[in-house]
Design a protein around this nucleic acid. Sequence first.
DNA 1: CTGAAAGCGCTTACAG
DNA 2: CTGAAAGCGCTTACAG
Lengths: 341, 341
Amino acid sequence: MTLKTSTLQDVARVAGVSTATVSRALSNPKMVTESTRTRVSKAVETTGYRINRAARNLRTQRSHSVLVLLPDLANPFFSEILEGISRILAHQGYSMLIASTGQVHDSGERLLDYLDDARADGMIILDGGLDRDVVDMLENAGKTRRILFACEWVEGADFPTVRCENHQGTLDAVNHLYDLGHRKIAHVTGPEGNVLMHVRKDAFVEQIAALDLELNPGWVIPGDFSIAAGCRAAQAWIGLEDRTTAVFCASDQLALAFIAELSRHGIKVPEEVSVMGFDDIDIAEQFIPPLTTVRQDRMRLGETAANMLMTQITYPDNRGAGNIAILPVSLVVRESTAPPP
Amino acid sequence: MTLKTSTLQDVARVAGVSTATVSRALSNPKMVTESTRTRVSKAVETTGYRINRAARNLRTQRSHSVLVLLPDLANPFFSEILEGISRILAHQGYSMLIASTGQVHDSGERLLDYLDDARADGMIILDGGLDRDVVDMLENAGKTRRILFACEWVEGADFPTVRCENHQGTLDAVNHLYDLGHRKIAHVTGPEGNVLMHVRKDAFVEQIAALDLELNPGWVIPGDFSIAAGCRAAQAWIGLEDRTTAVFCASDQLALAFIAELSRHGIKVPEEVSVMGFDDIDIAEQFIPPLTTVRQDRMRLGETAANMLMTQITYPDNRGAGNIAILPVSLVVRESTAPPP
DNA sequence: CTGAAAGCGCTTACAG
DNA sequence: CTGAAAGCGCTTACAG
């Protein structure tokens, strides 16, 4: 029943040394003699001492925590990335703060405040759709070495980033459909203004051209990464005068909802149309039909992001090296794609 | 390009008042005259002052953050609960720290440390499967008013909790299947040792008895809330000598994987067997067939949990009142259930 | 290797 | 209504 937690002072008194020595024994054991070390250890034990992080943070000007900014807390795509980030941070004694872009905005805070008010030493941003002025503010504040973009990024800004091979993944997807015999392929895009949306769409258009395939204007269907957009996109596809035999969706959530909406209209996948996603979220494999998709190793992405950020925070002057990591993707062929009817 | 952030001192100097006055003007505006207030505001503006939270935290002995403990960061069930929690916290100027039980353990920390080392003012625990000695430690430390269990809870411990009507939801599920004409119903359980597993299983067994239905020992299939367990449970069900015509799964993830595995074995839902879940995660509605399930309002659950915890933290002496909130559930009938073949 | 002392940036009784 | 001063609990040059 420890009601009042003990301080460094208490430990020092019990061990019969100064607080400076206790501090050293704890944070840099080899600076003190073996005998002091054991006396301090014992004193820590008997007093039940726990460091007060608020005090240490104030003194060292470090918060020992990192903010992870998500576009949307409800999207399961991020769960495993968080797992990866958290694993690395915990290992280094860092805590993980989470916020979503919308809520930071709604509560009237500025993103930069997290860094400025000593709440976070750095941030991992998973939202490439940040308002341009927010991005500018971060950049102008000279905080680029405390910020890292993961999955998404901001074109033209000087932030380190880790992302996956979006371009290659998209080519793989289109080629897979082509190899199955599809010649009319549609694309459901991510949200307008999002980098991933552009990269994947551009790669799609590029490869369609490279394969010398037809591409009607209506075959590029605007969406975002949500379930609702997938349903809407399916309705748009159904309404097409000249339907395609295959559809490449910019995310799994989109693809799953797309297939579900088709199903509600009695259209069967892959018998009547092949559908692919991007991401390989957990449920993709359990869907009926199991979803053909492009796999991103989200755990590794999270780990890589956290490692890079920790390095930057620890060695802020190490400019240049390791500013960008691009992780491989892999095509996962399952049953939502088949030769055209 | 603010390189050095300014302090209260700087503001005080510019405004021509003491730091005490600046502090008051900022945190308790009505304590100072209108004219001082405007002078301070201007000084804040020109200096670009942001409060240093580490300093405030040390001084006030409050961290203004809350830890949310998840059993598993990768499970999408929690995403929307986080959204609810985060919304309330952000509104009150609190930050949200996230960790998973496994990682706290792996990194050699004790859960109690978050409270003891001034990292968090309170915690919301979403993991009822905590080791008994961890729970005892939390209870013995007298921190029960800083901790709240949400969704899950610990039997016999004196922690406030918010949860949903698990018992009623289970009865609704069984009754729904009964009303469709099912007389042989199986149950795939949650993880051994988990409260929800017990409550739902007991309610299931109770209602089966109340309806005077048969219940073979093999019809209660052990699982956990994961996808893998759903697949395993399906295999167990398939291997049954005397198969049931309906299955009630303790979670949606379980149910979705169960159906997927059946599908791999050529067994159709609901034509050959009806399957239900519990939770109503986003993807449930998009599954094929759309999943019949018991809906928990996860956003509201998160909001309620956060509100209750904030009240406890703010008024720690308000014992007794509002120690438990039980939220209603609702049956959502979709297409994974039908009359028996 | 160890200690005395300053100081990180706030808030809050205590006086006036 | 406002200010001078103490202090939250650490860490770290600076001496010795």
